[in-house]
Write a protein that binds this DNA or RNA. Structure first.
Length: 176
DNA sequence: ATCGTTACGGTTGAA
DNA sequence: CTTTCAACCGTAACG
């Protein structure tokens, strides 16, 4: 199928909009919403989508009001319904490896997975702390919030790093 | 008018 | 350290 290329995307409006933001290259979709190509929608938007749906707002209205494509609203709502999470899937990383070599790798991997440092420190903590009833059933909101705040820290750290990189660029001499 | 699905160009991050 | 590459992203368009 011949689909239009990105270069010819917005010929009639006149503005092939680009929006520069602290965290990357923003674009504007047909509904006037801002998004970053290749990256998940911001968490607060995802929250709003789910929240509105929970209040009985129809997906098409959510799409128009939040200026998010209906395909995306559909996907996020679908995922929420089957996983109970509003978070995007895990991006990046590696999986590959196959054949005979993979089996050895898998065994090592399993060993690592079963004996992470964390489990050792948990055992130590439990033994000495006397708090043995700590193991958690997945408590939904609590876990989400924890991940969220971790993410926030991460993105802040990244933004800062990139700003420093830009500023540093001005006075930086040739790297070693 | 709605909404499920998917080609596309994109970013990410463990190996 | 750099490179590879399969995972996911949202939009736009089709059905």
């Amino acid at each position: 199928m011949m689909r239009p290329t990105l270069a010819h995307n917005y010929p009639r409006t006149g503005f092939p909009l680009e929006v520069s933001s602290p965290l990357g290259q923003g674009r504007v979709n047909q509904l006037g919403g801002v998004f970053i190509n290749g990256r998940p929608l911001p968490n607060h938007i995802r929250h709003q989508i789910v929240e509105m749906a929970l209040h009985g707002v129809r997906p098409c209205v959510i799409s128009r009001q939040l200026r998010v494509s209906h395909g995306c609203v559909s996907k996020i709502l679908c995922r929420y319904q089957e996983t109970g999470s509003l978070r995007p899937g895990a991006i990046g990383g590696s999986k590959s490896k196959q054949g005979a070599a993979a089996e050895g790798e898998t065994r090592i991997e399993e060993y690592k997975r079963d004996n992470p440092e964390g489990s050792i420190s948990r055992i130590v903590r439990c033994t000495f702390g006397g708090k043995l009833e700590e193991e958690d059933e997945e408590e939904e909101e609590e876990e989400e919030e924890e991940v969220e705040s971790k993410e926030l820290e991460e993105s802040e750290r990244r933004a800062k790093h990139s700003i420093e990189g830009i500023l540093g660029d001005r006075c930086k001499r040739a790297s070693p």
